[in-house]
Write a protein that binds this DNA or RNA. Sequence first.
DNA 1: ACTGAATAACAATTCAAA
DNA 2: TTTGAATTGTTATTCAGT
Lengths: 149, 149
Amino acid sequence: MKGLRQRKIREIISERDIGTQKALVEALRNEGLPVTQATISRDIKEMQLVKVPLEDGTYKYALPQDQRFNPSQKLRRALLDHFVSAEAAENLVVVKCLPGTANAVASLIDGMNWPEVVGTVSGDDTLLIVCRARDKAEEMARRIRGIVS
Amino acid sequence: MKGLRQRKIREIISERDIGTQKALVEALRNEGLPVTQATISRDIKEMQLVKVPLEDGTYKYALPQDQRFNPSQKLRRALLDHFVSAEAAENLVVVKCLPGTANAVASLIDGMNWPEVVGTVSGDDTLLIVCRARDKAEEMARRIRGIVS
DNA sequence: ACTGAATAACAATTCAAA
DNA sequence: TTTGAATTGTTATTCAGT
């Protein structure tokens, strides 16, 4: 339950402004995740969310900002959310993701500027990582799987 | 009182880990700034400080992270803390700062990569901004003064 | 406008349970 | 190990005073 809930929390606080844990409890209830404030408080601690005072005098919960700027953290989070599988085929890695998420993952991989990666191509739920050489593809597939495990 | 107190707050939370407003109240008391939690709460809101959950299970107050990474915000903060005066002289701007702070300010100005600036030289409480042309120096002095006003 | 005292609102933790 | 209920601790705001 916890993993799903925490992902949902990230989703909710990214989409709209949530100012209190009570508001977050209600938002989660509406998403079919009944939970109490005590649990949310623990989640916030674990996820290292912060309550940010806004210009307009209100507050909102937000993701820790260094994670927002750190490309490999972003990729890790994206993979944790969307990754299904990764397999090497010749000089390619075929990465399966949840429907509609392959593009997001691909652009994060692009953003890593890994030297062994020539580029990526993505569809709806699958993306290809084009590597410089066959042996690099195997290594890359392992790296991707390693990130989520 | 407020300006000084808020600067002191920034100083304190940068130096050591402060986990609650009560702890901050005490720290300020020790610095000769008697104040109550209510006021701290308002300062935190105004300064947009956040309470960050740390890896070790504790919490600490911290500066908003985008300010930490934003060079012009950093310069602005440094100037608010340390700036005394800025005057153009030929193609130079002579910037006076509080004792011992000129170096810090100079390196932040270097970091701005302003095209009209050739470089900076700094002593203990004075720094020179070397501009490409005389008319640029006047403009630069105005810009510096503008930042703090 | 700024502040403190009191209070309300909110968040973290304890304790017990599954 | 995870959770909720109750509790305690902490923080935001109200209200009054300067």
